[in-house]
Amino acid sequence: MTRAGTMAGLANRWGFHAVLLALGALMLANLNWPLVQSFEFVFIWEYRIALLKGFGITLLLTVEAGVVGVVFGTLFAIGSQSAYSPLRWLVGAYVEVFRNTPLLVQLLWIHFALPLVTGINTTALVSGIIGIGLQAAAYYTEIMRAGIQAVPRGQVEAAHALGLPAWTRWTRVVLPPAIRTVIPALLNQNISFFKATAIVGLGLLVGDFFTAALRVSNDTFHFLEPLTFAAAVYLVLGWQAGRWTLRLERRLSRGER
């Protein structure tokens, strides 16, 4: 690509490498070597049960976000196509509120403020499940809406012209191609929610994987090992899932026509 070449011309290739090397050397020189030498990863093994339990909660929240998100996102997306304008408006408002405020604030609101309205105190985990479910529904609604709008108009018109009942029109004609086109987007969104479970964990202290790692740190006064291990786990899983999604996306787009 020529434009890449042009940009490359802006930064002399060798100069670039020299800067990188210098940066790396600077970092190595300033490392706290005594600390690095005292690394002990044995804690991770000692606390394996706690960490695994935490990971179970992380998985639970991730799967829940995906399932609740797809189910309610699909329902809300169908609602957003309704001829009845108050329903469209309601879905729109819901999506905007949950997409344009931070997840942590939603979680805190649900855990601390909502019980004052309902009179029902929820445990941290239940609040977390409600919060991530509500947000997932909002994000997946947007994705499903895009998928539905990508279905050619003629398909919907043909369904109307055949007199298909609304249920059949949605489940057999509109949703199958709509979902097919957005599968990669759905999966990418679920990877985002996998990452967001750490916010639920730490924000409400529900004892997810990351909170468990932080607890190990607090117990042992070793911060670097558990936290770096936790970061590495998120990195490897998130990165690998992203690669699978990309591969699936390529295969799906090749399968078309």
């Binding site: 003629g154 398909q155 018109e157 043909a158 369904a159 012209a161 057999r172 004609v173 191609p177």
Partner: peptide, 11 residues
């Protein structure tokens, strides 16, 4: 009804 662009359900 028969459409100009057929509109068969492609899937």
């Amino acid at each position: 009804m028969v459409f100009q662009s057929f509109n068969l359900f492609m899937h």
